[in-house]
Amino acid sequence: MSEMILQAERVTRSFDLGAGSKLEVLRGVSLQVRQGELLAITGPSGCGKSTLLHILGLLDLPNSGQVIYQGQRVLDLSSHQRDQLRCRSFGFVFQLYHLLPELNVLDNVLFPQMILFHSSSWWSQRGPARRRALDVLERVGLQQRLRHRPNQLSGGERQRVAIARALMNQPAVLLADEPTGNLDKQTGQEVLRLLHELHRSGQTLLLVTHDAEVAQSADRVLRLEEGQLIPAV
């Protein structure tokens, strides 16, 4: 059995709706993600899948509970330490791609490396970072579109750029939030194929989707219902 990489313990998260009412989205969710695993979390829209993903990726904080990354209780870390951990260890792929519109494909992909390296070390890392960006872009099949801006790309291409960007800092865990949700079936299949390739190469992948067909291809599928995770049938 492979090593545990990411873990959630009795995580709760609620949203204040005003006038004293609260929406409880996660009610003591516990979860374990193993190294190299492709885990899919499914559930109806608005059930809290993305919220769980954000908490696991240190983008959001739970009201209670704990997130453990490689044995480290990450919620006990300072904000700055969590930012650094997120930068080094997590890669995000969003449904709406979320590329920076002012930057071209290459710069979008290089950007996480700019965040990773301090200004002083950037100049020495620039060459290797660029070579790595070109490798990653070749891997997602976009080596010919380096100078294109996001608005000059199709949806599928944008998502592939987003995947390349997420892979740039060689994250331990790739978190994908409805990665095919905004794509047509064929393009979605291509993106899914790419994610499976990554998984096969050993990348740990946490996939959030409401699409049962997408979830089926995962090693393990969990369903989020009424704020609780249950194994999918």
């Binding site: 990726g57 983008l59 904000s79 700055h80 930012d83 650094q84 997120r86 930068c87 080094r88 995000f92 979320h98 590329l99 920076l100 519109p101 950007f111 996480p112 965040i115 990773l116 960007r165 800092n169």
Partner: peptide, 16 residues
């Protein structure tokens, strides 16, 4: 705002 969210998701700090 959206760019700020994206940049933070990549690990940029609030100070950054």
């Amino acid at each position: 705002r959206r760019d700020i969210g994206i940049i933070k998701s990549m690990g940029a700090s609030s100070r950054g």
